[in-house]
Structures are given as structure tokens and as C-alpha cells.
Amino acid sequence: MIGVIARQQLLACRRQNLAPVTVVVLGGFAVLAGILGWASHHTIIGIYDESVKLVTDRGQTAPPNPFLLKPTLSMLSNEMIYITVIGALVAIVVGHLAIASDATNGIGRLVFSRPIRRRDYTFGKLAATGTILGAGVAVSYLVSVAALTVVDRFPTGGDLVRLAGFYLFAWLYLMLFAVIGAVALLLLRRRSLGLLAAIGVWLTLTFALPQFTSGLRPSQSLNPIVDPVPINQTLFRITSHVRPYSIAEQFKEAAGRILATATPEPAADTWLRIAPIVVAFALLAALTWNLITRHDYSRSNPE
């Protein structure tokens, strides 16, 4: 029965163009990250070549190519920002729509007058949501590999594994926001309010909490800069305790470690950054199941 629900949801999303749009948006931003990486690579190499010419003309030794000092995958560092900003928004819409028509349009009345368990229904909806977001993430992975190949060279086996780890983590992060979209709708029982509330949560997690817990530097919300302000000042020492709740911040920092673009740290510390996202997803998925089990599908509220 899980498969029946998932298949139906995938078909509905395909007809609503939600599935292709999700794949195109996620893949498109991977393309954009690749273009930005290529542009910065191209510009810096151009400047470096000119500098080398100038320096060698003066008989001095040229400094090493800056790109040889940077990790290969740093070219895709913008991708982690797109996942937290655009990807999370898309995931909210996917999660919201997975639940919306059945819960508010009255279709649920017909569904639950059939022999289906609400647990199977929940897992079916989650499976469909995971498939759509997974397709988007898989396309992003392929685009990233292509971008690295075009700009530099075909990634090494280690880089491919790191990239796969990053996108798997990104998929989990997107699933978290998809269940936020579903939970908000089930709690508020109105489509517009549910979507608005989920976007409010996204704004808080993506912009407000990172700002609060990372030295009040607005630029950190949009750039993968780690600890711009040392936490030895009292205020930042206090706010740093809230950091585990700053999901977007944890994502960016853990993603930086997975891609090996950030300062290395012990693996246990990286797992501690991943854990809040896994726990939050598990709790919200369980809450989705609980809310679907208690939802009164005999009433409809198409607003």
C-alpha cells in the first residue's frame, strides 16, 4: 500500500509539473555553482598568469598557483548555500503539496474510506517526497561532476565519494524541510497559513538563528565563513550554546567538512553537527505520522 500511495503522489506531482520543476531548480543551481566556480577559477588563473609574467620579467620567483593550494571541491562551495536557501524552500513546497490536497480538499475522505492504514499512507507520502527530492539531488550530483570535469579534471574516486556524501546529506536536509512543510499544514489545517508558517520556520532556521549564533554577521547567512568572531566574548559564548539548534549553520559546517573545503576537525565533531539534523528529521517524520493518524479527514477546508 505504501507503493500505491507513493506512485500516486509521484504521478500527481509529475502532472502538476512539481517533480520536473524541483529537478530543474536543484540541478539548475548546481549548474550555477559550477559556472560561478568556473568564473572565479578563470578570473583568478587569468590574474595569476599575468602576475607570473610580470614577476618572472623582473627576474623574481613566481608564487604557486592558488588553485593548486585549494581543495578541488571548493569550486562547488556555493552549492551548500543554494541547498539551504533555495533547496529548502523547494522542499517545503514539495512536502506541503504532498499532504495538502488529501488533507484539505476532501480527497482524504475517499482515501480513508478504503482499507489503508495511516502509517502506510504516511510512509507512502514520505517515500514519494524523498524520490522527488532524491531525483533533484542526483541530477545536482551529475551536474557537479560534469562541472568539475569541464573546469579542472574528472574528479578522483575520493572526490566522487565526498561529493556523494555531501549530496546524501543535502537530501536529508531537504527532507527535513519537506516534513516541516507537511507538519505546518497538518497543525494549522489551512493551506495558506501552513505554507506561511513553514516559510517562517525556514527564515528562522536559515537566517535568524545562524545570525544569532555566529557573531551577528549577516554575511554568514549567505557565505560559508566559519566563526568570523571568536567566541571568547561573553555574548557569543552564551549564544554558541544555541548553535545545535541552528540547523542551517550545522549543515553548512558539516557540509564543508564532508567536501573537505573547511578547516579539518575530528570525525566525531562532524557527526555531532550532522546529528541534530538527523534527530530533527526523525522527530518531525514521527510527528507527521502522528498528525496524519489524528487528522479528521471527514472535514475539508479548501482555503
Binding site: 504521478l11 500527481a12 502532472r15 502538476q16 476532501g106
Partner: peptide, 12 residues
Amino acid sequence: YLPSEVRMYPHL
């Protein structure tokens, strides 16, 4: 069961 207002998936 046929409810008073029939709603189905409109895109299908």
C-alpha cells in the same frame, strides 16, 4: 462511499 462533494486529483 460517495461524499456530497466529490473531490479527486484534478490533474489526473
